[in-house]
Measured scan of single mutants.
Amino acid sequence: ATNIVGKVKWYNSTKNAGFIEQDNGGKDVFVHKSAVDAAGLHSLEEGQDVIFDLEEKQGKAYAVNLRIK
């Protein structure tokens, strides 16, 4: 899926990971530091509006192509 709108639920820069809550009510999506880095960002803030694509690896959904809304 592409161009999904959501809000950062939480992001821990020590653990280099967090979750994004989908505005469409879907399951929360894992976001890794690699996606944050690829977006040219240093970190994510709780409640921040984002747009992202979903990629599945080994049955788990990940946020990729992250951008700030």
Score class of each variant (00 low, 15 high):
Ser43Pro: 09
Ile68Cys: 07
Lys57Asn: 10
Leu44Gly: 01
Gly47Asp: 04
Phe30Trp: 07
Asn12His: 08
Ala63Phe: 01
Gly6Gln: 00
Asp49Ser: 14
Gly25His: 08
Tyr11Ile: 07
Lys60Tyr: 11
Gly47Asn: 06
Gly26Asp: 09
Gly47Ile: 02
Asn16Gly: 15
Asp28Pro: 10
Asp28Ser: 07
Ser34Asn: 10
Lys7Cys: 08
Ser34Leu: 09
Lys7Phe: 06
Phe19Pro: 00
Ala38Thr: 07
Ile4Gly: 03
Asp23Ser: 15
Asn24His: 10
Val36Ala: 03
Glu45Ser: 13
Asp53Pro: 00
Tyr11Lys: 02
Gly26Leu: 09
Leu66Trp: 00
Val31Gly: 01
Asp23Glu: 14
His32Gly: 11
Lys9Asp: 01
Ala63Arg: 00
Ala35Thr: 09
Lys27Thr: 09
Phe52Tyr: 06
Ile68Phe: 09
Trp10Val: 05
Val36Tyr: 02
Phe19Glu: 07
Lys69Met: 13
Tyr62Pro: 03
Val50Ala: 02
Gly47Glu: 03
Val64Ile: 11
Tyr62Gly: 04
Asp28Cys: 11
Asp23Gln: 15
Ser43His: 12
Tyr11His: 03
Glu21Phe: 09
Glu46Leu: 12
Gln22Glu: 04
Ala35Gln: 09
Trp10Asp: 02
Ile68Pro: 07
Gly18Lys: 01
Glu56Ala: 08
Val8His: 00
Lys57Cys: 11
Lys7Gly: 01
Gly40Cys: 09
Phe19Cys: 11
Ala61Val: 15
Tyr62Val: 08
Asp37Val: 15
Lys9Gln: 03
Lys69Thr: 12
Arg67Gly: 03
Tyr62Leu: 07
His32Cys: 11
Gln22Asp: 05
Asp28Glu: 08
Ile20Trp: 00
Asn24Glu: 08
Ala61Met: 13
Gly40Arg: 07
Phe19Lys: 07
Ile51Lys: 04
Lys57Asp: 08
Val64Cys: 05
Leu44Gln: 00
Ser13Gln: 11
Leu66His: 01
Gly26Arg: 09
Asn16His: 13
Leu66Cys: 02
Thr14Asn: 12
Ile20Leu: 10
Ile4Phe: 07
Asn24Trp: 09
Ile4Ser: 05
Ala17Cys: 15
Ile4Lys: 09
Gly40Phe: 06
Thr14Ser: 13
Gln22His: 08
Ser34Pro: 04
Leu41Phe: 10
Gln22Cys: 13
Ala35Ile: 06
Thr14Trp: 12
Ser43Asn: 12
Ala39Phe: 02
Lys33Val: 08
Val36Asn: 01
Val5Phe: 13
Glu46Met: 14
Ala63Leu: 05
Ala1Ile: 12
Ala17Ser: 14
Gln48Asn: 05
Leu54Arg: 06
Lys27Leu: 10
Glu46Val: 15
Gly18Met: 05
Ser34Trp: 11
Lys15Arg: 12
Val31Cys: 01
Lys7Tyr: 05
Asn65Ala: 03
Tyr62Ile: 08
Arg67Thr: 05
Asn16Trp: 09
Ala61Ser: 14
Thr14Tyr: 13
Gly18Phe: 06
Arg67Ala: 04
Ala63Thr: 02
Phe30Asp: 02
Val31Pro: 00
Gly59Lys: 06
Lys33His: 08
Gly59Pro: 01
His32Ala: 08
Val50Pro: 00
Gly47Tyr: 04
Lys57Glu: 08
Asn12Lys: 08
Val29Pro: 01
Asn3Gly: 10
Glu56Phe: 15
Lys33Tyr: 08
Lys15Ile: 14
Trp10Gly: 03
Lys57Pro: 03
Ser34Ala: 10
Ile51Arg: 04
Asp49His: 15
Gly18Ser: 01
Lys69Glu: 10
Leu54Cys: 08
Gly25Ser: 07
Asp37Asn: 14
Phe30Gly: 02
Asp23Lys: 15
His42Tyr: 12
Asn16Lys: 15
Asp53Gln: 04
Ile68Gln: 05
Lys7Asp: 00
Leu41Arg: 05
Lys15Pro: 02
Val64Glu: 04
Leu41Ser: 03
Lys9Met: 04
Leu41Pro: 02
Phe52Pro: 00
Leu54Tyr: 06
Asn16Thr: 06
Asn3Val: 04
Ala1Glu: 10
His42Leu: 12
His32Ser: 11
Val29His: 03
Val31Tyr: 03
Val8Cys: 03
Lys33Ser: 09
Lys69His: 12
Ile4His: 07
Gly6Arg: 00
Asn24Cys: 10
Ala61Lys: 14
Ala38Met: 09
Lys60Gly: 07
Val64Phe: 04
Val8Glu: 01
His32Thr: 10
Tyr62Asn: 07
Ser13Ala: 14
Ala63Ser: 02
Ala39His: 02
Ala61Thr: 14
Ser34His: 09
Lys9Cys: 05
Gln58Ala: 13
Lys15Trp: 14
Ala35Ser: 09
Glu21Met: 14
Lys60Thr: 07
Tyr62Glu: 07
Lys33Arg: 11
Asn24Ile: 08
Tyr11Phe: 09
Val8Gly: 01
Val31Asn: 00
Phe30Gln: 05
Ala39Asn: 03
Leu66Gln: 00
Lys57Met: 10
Val64Lys: 08
Phe52Leu: 02
Gly59Ser: 05
Ala17Arg: 12
Val5Trp: 11
Val29Leu: 03
Lys7Asn: 04
Ile51Asp: 02
Lys7Leu: 04
Phe30Arg: 06
Asn24Gln: 09
Glu21Ala: 14
Gly25Arg: 07
Leu41Val: 07
Lys7Met: 05
His32Glu: 09
Gly18Asn: 01
Ile20Met: 03
Asp49Leu: 15
Gly47Arg: 05
Lys60Met: 10
Lys33Leu: 06
Asn12Pro: 02
Ala39Cys: 03
Gln58His: 14
Phe30Pro: 06
Thr2Val: 13
Ala63Asn: 02
Glu56Pro: 03
Lys9Gly: 02
Glu55Pro: 01
Lys27Met: 10
Thr2Asn: 10
Tyr11Val: 10
Glu45Cys: 14
Asp49Gln: 15
Phe19Met: 12
Asn3His: 07
Ile20Tyr: 00
Ala17His: 15
Tyr11Thr: 06
Asp53Val: 03
Asn24Phe: 09
Asn3Glu: 06
Leu54Lys: 06
